[in-house]
């Protein structure tokens, strides 16, 4: 799982999500299948449960929003456990949770089993415009440098008695953000000088293309293929 070529994983994940999103929520049996499939993949990837849960927290705001949806809406209403709910809202909320979680699990599997560097390499192989790949590469390289700089600025502020308490202090924080932006911009210029000094003419070195075995290709295709089968199968049986 971890050794599969990144660009194949990206394509497979994307196809899987497309099939998932294209499925109507009323075809709920299909989603059980999808979750079983992605659950199996997660199990094969052997990602630590703690890591999965901590990364899944980004979904919390969406889940909260989805839970509100059955209470606000129009159309047909029905009673459930003494609550009066809108049928449309409930379905829409359920769709957000089911499809969102599905997409999130795919993203977690991809990011957990692939180094950030490899994901960028994969996007490059998939012919993402070179400029976007370069921007992503530099972001990856300099995110630590900039966050260290931000941390040093924070320590410097605190050392001179500044503690952000309320909205009145936002001005200081905004100025610090501005200073950080200018510093990063100037660093960008220095990096560009260093690149020119080593013969940069607008093209970054290309990594050696990995050799892809038939088995790898097959095992990657398995993910979206399973989803597609489930989609067709459940549609055939229950939608009549």
């Amino acid at each position: 799982m971890h050794s599969l070529p990144a660009h194949l994983k990206i394509v497979a994940g994307l196809l899987f999500i497309i099939v998932g999103v294209a499925t109507s929520i009323s075809n709920w049996q299909a989603f059980i299948g999808y979750f079983l499939v992605i659950g199996t993949v997660l199990a094969i990837a052997k990602l630590p449960v703690k890591k999965i849960l901590s990364r899944a927290t980004v979904e919390i705001p969406f889940v909260l929003f989805a839970f509100l949806m059955p209470f606000f809406g129009t159309g047909e209403k029905f009673e459930l456990l003494g609550l009066s709910l809108y049928r449309e809202g409930l379905l829409a909320g359920a769709a957000i949770i089911a499809k969102g979680t599905l997409g999130l699990l795919v993203a977690i599997t991809l990011s957990g089993s692939t180094k950030a560097r490899e994901i960028i390499g994969g996007l490059e192989t998939l012919r993402l415009p070179a400029l976007m790949v370069q921007i992503a590469t530099f972001m990856l390289r300099y995110v630590n440098v900039v966050s260290d700089e931000m941390e040093r600025m924070k320590v410097a502020r605190q050392s001179r008695g500044f503690e952000a308490k309320g909205i009145a202090d936002w001005k200081i924080l905004a100025q610090a953000a501005g200073a950080l932006f200018i510093r990063s911009y100037e660093r960008g210029e220095r990096v560009h000088l260093a690149m020119l000094s080593r013969g940069y003419v607008g093209v970054m070195p290309v990594m050696e293309k990995p050799v892809i075995t038939k088995f790898q290709r097959f095992s990657v295709i398995a993910l979206p293929a399973c989803a597609l089968l489930i989609f067709l199968f459940t549609n055939m049986i229950w939608s009549r």
Binding site: T137, F138, R141, V145, L193, A194
Partner: peptide, 17 residues
């Protein structure tokens, strides 16, 4: 190619992953 400049801040010079 003939002039090799080593800049002061290595973070400016080392930009690859």
């Amino acid at each position: 190619a003939k002039v090799g400049i080593v800049f002061q801040d290595p973070d400016d010079q080392l930009f690859m992953p």
